[in-house]
């Protein structure tokens, strides 16, 4: 792991901003382009960059395999759970209008929860697939 010093410092400098950009894409998806899918892929891009520069061990210290694997079903559960919450509160499946005190805010909240579910699943899946390929290659 005697990689270029500039490369390692540069990666360290740029990683938080990539994560920040992913969060921006996630939470600004209501107002501009973006959303769970794109933010999830950008998040997994952080892990890819980390693996390329610092090796698989460093990346898996930051994003352990067990966490990544649990993220995949967790996101689907968040999404489906949002739907079931509407069902339990007396409306149709994935009808968000009962989640808040008035319908508009409830819809905003529902969209936020659903996008969070998509983010978790996509980030987990992409990272897990990447880990699987990298581990096979060794």
């Amino acid at each position: 792991m005697s990689l270029d010093l500039i490369l390692r410092i540069g990666t360290k400098l740029i990683l938080p901003f990539i994560l920040l950009f992913a969060l921006y894409v996630q939470f600004h998806g209501d107002y501009g382009p973006g959303g769970g899918f794109q933010a999830g892929v950008i998040t997994s891009g952080v892990v890819v960059l980390l693996t390329i520069t610092f090796g698989l061990e460093a990346a898996q210290r930051m994003a352990p395999q067990a966490v990544v694997q649990r993220m995949i079903p967790l996101g689907v559960l968040i999404y489906a759970g949002t739907g079931v919450a509407g069902l339990l509160l007396g409306k149709n499946f994935l009808d968000y209008s009962v989640l808040g005190h008035d319908a508009v805010h409830a819809h905003e909240l529902g969209i936020f929860l659903v996008e969070a579910g998509v983010l978790v699943t996509v980030a987990g899946t992409m990272t897990a697939i990447f880990y699987a390929f990298v581990e096979r290659g060794r």
Binding site: G29, D30, G32, P33, V118
Partner: peptide, 22 residues
Amino acid sequence: KETGVPNAVTSVLADYRGYDTL
């Protein structure tokens, strides 16, 4: 008016067409 989300792509994706995205 209905969702409070100005980006129609997001509201269609996550609300009106929630089943598809699920």
